[in-house]
Design a protein around this nucleic acid. Sequence first.
DNA 1: CTGTAATTTCAGTAAATACTGAAATTACAG
DNA 2: CTGTAATTTCAGTATTTACTGAAATTACAG
Lengths: 189, 189
Amino acid sequence: MSEKLTPMIQSCVLHFGEMGSRWGINRTVGQMYALLVLSKEPLCADDITEALGISRSNVSMGLKELMSWELVKLQHRQGERREFYSAPGDVWDIAKILIEQRRKREIDPTLSTLRNLLIETPGNANEEYAQERMREMYELIEMITLWTQEIQRLDSANLGKLLKLGSSIGKVLDMKDRLLGSGKKETSK
Amino acid sequence: MSEKLTPMIQSCVLHFGEMGSRWGINRTVGQMYALLVLSKEPLCADDITEALGISRSNVSMGLKELMSWELVKLQHRQGERREFYSAPGDVWDIAKILIEQRRKREIDPTLSTLRNLLIETPGNANEEYAQERMREMYELIEMITLWTQEIQRLDSANLGKLLKLGSSIGKVLDMKDRLLGSGKKETSK
DNA sequence: CTGTAATTTCAGTAAATACTGAAATTACAG
DNA sequence: CTGTAATTTCAGTATTTACTGAAATTACAG
């Protein structure tokens, strides 16, 4: 990390590099992305090289990675050979992309693996129990995925609305009871 | 990976080892945990050593790691020196622990870092823009965290209820509108 | 086309992470 | 206590992952 970065931006970049590395994202790529997100203007590869003090080829590979995640857009400028890169301007859009990509890369394959194991006939009591747990996993992951997908449909405005709905999911459950008229007065806790 | 494991269980163990490594969890620790989750009976360290074909010391370190995440419980048996380890019997309980631990380890520090950067006075236009983005991140992460915390309060039964609520968050927003009588008829899409 | 300024690729190297075996420590039955 | 069967620690090593510089490739202005 060498030139140009103010301490404020540098702190943020370093932090997200660190976080990235804890979530299975290469530290340097995390830093690159933080830099792009925090920058109003699109950056070219050399800007990043200089800002982070890493090699040009490393930046090239990192950008390739970010492109494969569809986390960056590429911009041409008239009469310029260089490419400029930028992150989506809305943080929620970024989150949606991340969720979607991880779903494709990790969740879907996991569901598929579990599904395949669940159609096998258990060979003994162990396997029977194991399948039980796998089934629970499958259902939980599937449920969370479905909800997440619904939430992803929201734009920033409606997201805010949902979030202001208040801190209590309990209310949602109560609503459900009231709306659907499910007789017993259950609470969410 | 050597002894005893049936192909079904082995596949699952390998898959979750792989997934773990993509989420910043040591592959072997992921395998160990899958094994524990799939096993009805608690396992001792040697069981794991044998099942995964890794060294006893590696198992010891892995179990230490899993303990620090509070993902395993430890059981004594009368007149036995050995310790037996087991995972929670409910997959949703496991998920709640994972969410909670990652919040403590990664989300809270991130929010704290962002908060510190946000109270600084921006030194130039760049920093002003950067702070804008940081504020959006802060708010999004905080919101998601609050919701997640609410959802974590649910037990398996109520979770099922919430999830059966249906695939449409839109419905929740509609409920909100109806219940709170917010005049305009907005939709969630 | 041609020259140039950019990007990409990749073999080699560096750094970080994970794993092992041996030694030290611990727990407890007798 | 003492002996033993277990666990933990840790220095050294192996493996994996990340990074670099040099060479190859590409895009395009002129």
